[in-house]
Amino acid sequence: MAEAAVDTTEDQTVDTKVIKERLDLLKGGRFKMWLEICAHCGLCADSCFFYLAHDKDPKYMPSHKVMKTLGELYDKKGEVDRATLKEMAEVVYGDCTACRRCSMFCPFGIDIATMIAAGRGICCSQDLHPDGLKAAIQNYKDTGNQMAMSSEDFVETCEWMAEETEEELKGLEIPIDKQGARIMYTVNAREPKFYPQDIAEAAMIFHAARENWTMPSNGWDDTNLAMFAGDGKTMTAQVKLVYDAAERLGAENIGITE
C-alpha cells in the first residue's frame, strides 16, 4: 500500500447529502448502463500502465478501480465515512491519470476514465483533492491562471520576450489583445512563469510563418487543473474565461500550446 497522499488533516466529516446529490445527478443513461453491464471480463487490465508498471498487480486494473470507488459509492448509496472516501481518493487521484486507454480495450466501450473523473468530483466535493490541485484552483479563482500571475506581469513577460527575440527575427512582435486575429494563442501558465523562452519560440514560428496571431491579456492560461481535481465550477469558469477572450478579440481560432 502506497503512503497516503491526500488529505493529511484530521477532519472526519463527510457530507453524505452532497455525495448523494452528486451520485443522483451523475446517474444518467450512460453511467447507469456502464455500471450495470460491465461483464468483469478483465480485458481492460493489460491496457493500463499502472497495472503493467506494478507487475500486473490486479488492484490496479481499470474496472477494479471503478468498482472500488464509484461502484462502491453507488452500492452504499453514498453512505460512506471519511476514511473510506480517503481510500477512494487515493485511487482516483493516485492510481489513474484518466488517459482513457482502457476505453479502447473494453468490449462494451465503457468509458472508464469518465467514471474515475466522476469519482474525483465526489472526492473534491468533500475537499479530498490533493493539496497541489487545491492551490492551483485557488489561483484560477483569484487570477484566472494556475500560477497566480497578474495580467501586467504576463504582458510584461511577453514584451520582454518580444524584445529579446526581435534580435533574431526582424519585425517580431508578440501582439497582445489584437482584434480579428486568425489564431488567439494561449499557453500553459508555467511558460510565462518559469519558461518564458517557450513563448519566444512560439512567437518565432508564428512570425516566420507570417501568421495573423495574438495573445489575450486575460484568459491566456489553457490549462485546467480544476478539471483534473473534479471541481466542475472552476473548470467551467476557466474555459469560459478563454472563450470569452476569443470572442472579445473576434479571433477565428484558439491555439493551445504544446
Binding site: F50, A53, D95, T97, R101, P130, L133, A136, F228
Partner: peptide, 25 residues
C-alpha cells in the same frame, strides 16, 4: 494506442506527495 507518460490527469501538479508513485508507474 500510446501509453500515458504517467504524469497526466493532474498527476504532476499534485506535487511531491505523489512523486514516488508517479515515478513507479
Amino acid at each position: 494506442y500510446n501509453h500515458c507518460c504517467g504524469g497526466g490527469g493532474g498527476y504532476i501538479p499534485m506535487g511531491p506527495p505523489f512523486k514516488r508513485r508517479r515515478m513507479e508507474s
